[in-house]
């Protein structure tokens, strides 16, 4: 069974089929546990409303969390890094060329000195 051997990384191995078997077992367990839950709800009562507190559903455009609001804390913490990085990405074609020439010169130096 040559094709049942695993991917070896030198210090460990990875067997996707074993992993998949374990994954399927977990999913089956989850489904079994889920099946213990209540199956039905009563139509035309307050059970169909989204909020128990009785509030109405607002405009979907207002309750959707937009991408710009995600990771606000992360971006705020690393503000210094991002300001620097974004200011380096000037979008100016001449700067693109400068970076290319710079790296070229640097690697030539490294190559000749090494």
């Amino acid at each position: 069974m040559e094709y049942m051997t695993t991917l070896s990384s030198g210090s460990g191995f990875w067997h996707p089929l074993l992993w998949l078997t374990a994954f399927v077992v977990v999913v089956v367990l989850a489904v079994i546990i889920r099946s213990f839950g209540a199956r039905k709800y009563k139509m035309d009562t307050e059970q169909t409303k989204p909020f128990l507190s009785g509030n109405d559903e607002s405009d979907p455009n207002e309750i959707h969390v937009r991408a710009g609001n995600l990771y606000w804390g992360y971006l705020e913490t690393l503000k210094g890094y991002y300001e620097k990085m974004i200011s380096l990405h000037t979008g100016n074609p001449a700067d693109y060329l400068l970076w290319l020439f710079g790296v070229l010169a640097l690697v030539v130096l490294i190559g000749l000195l090494a």
């Binding site: 990405h89 290319l100 790296v103 190559g111």
Partner: peptide, 21 residues
Amino acid sequence: IALVLIIVPMAMKCGAVPMHM
């Protein structure tokens, strides 16, 4: 020098920082 003249453009082509812009 020839090697560097060949590999740096290729690193640019594959988008290596800082020539990724």
